[in-house]
């Protein structure tokens, strides 16, 4: 199991407190807490993290500060582009929501990955995150191509079951739904605009 994931589950209240120094809106705080986890988890996929909780705290702090700076910058930008922004106001809101949805999906994918057996997780990470082809993975793990294919198939069946077990619809994590959801939310925004 991922050390970052373990540390995150254990020290979530501390992380929330760190972010809370810079933010007061509860949904902002939750978003930053989630983003902190995702970034730390992503880093751990590339390298061993020796002190996962300290690492999480540092990301939480850096992220809170850099987001505050970004917020200032983008506010300045809006003033300059205001005339155009009005016309497209709905789209702007939706694109932020999409971004959130994407992050939430990724967080669930991370949990699903953590629910897999070590060899299934390793294989899926090699294929989807390191971007290796099946024959390359087979060579690296000294297994047959068909064994790797079976592992990957089992990995997605298990991820699928994990997502379903959480009461979520696995179709929301499929490639098509991801695009379709964005369009749907945009349509809703446009419709309410016309009323």
């Amino acid at each position: 199991m991922s050390q970052v994931f373990k540390a995150f589950l254990k020290h979530k209240p501390v992380i929330r407190r760190i972010v809370g120094k810079y933010r007061s809106n509860p949904s902002d705080i939750e978003e930053l807490v989630q983003e902190t986890f995702l970034r730390a988890y992503a880093a751990e996929l590339k390298a061993e993290i020796r002190q996962p909780e300290k690492f999480l705290y540092r990301i939480a702090k850096n992220l809170s500060i850099s987001r505050a700076i970004r917020k200032e910058n983008s506010t300045t930008q809006f003033v300059g582009e205001l005339s155009e922004m009005e016309v497209f106001a709905d789209d702007g809101q939706v694109s932020q929501e999409d971004h959130l949805d994407a992050r939430q999906r990724l967080a669930v994918f991370a949990e699903a990955l953590e629910s897999l057996s070590p060899e299934l997780r390793e294989t899926l990470i090699m294929r989807r995150i390191e971007g290796l082809t099946v024959p390359k993975i087979a060579m690296r793990l000294d297994l047959s191509v068909s064994a790797i294919e079976k592992r990957l198939a089992k990995a997605i069946v298990d991820c699928y079951a994990y997502i379903r077990g959480k009461g979520l619809d696995p179709a929301d994590f499929g490639a098509k739904k991801i695009i379709r959801m964005k369009v749907a939310s945009r349509r809703v925004a446009t419709k309410s605009d016309k009323k």
Binding site: F109, L113, L124, I125, G174, K176, I178
Partner: peptide, 9 residues
Amino acid sequence: DFWAGTADL
């Protein structure tokens, strides 16, 4: 579709 979705990882 689900497999394609995992490309999001």
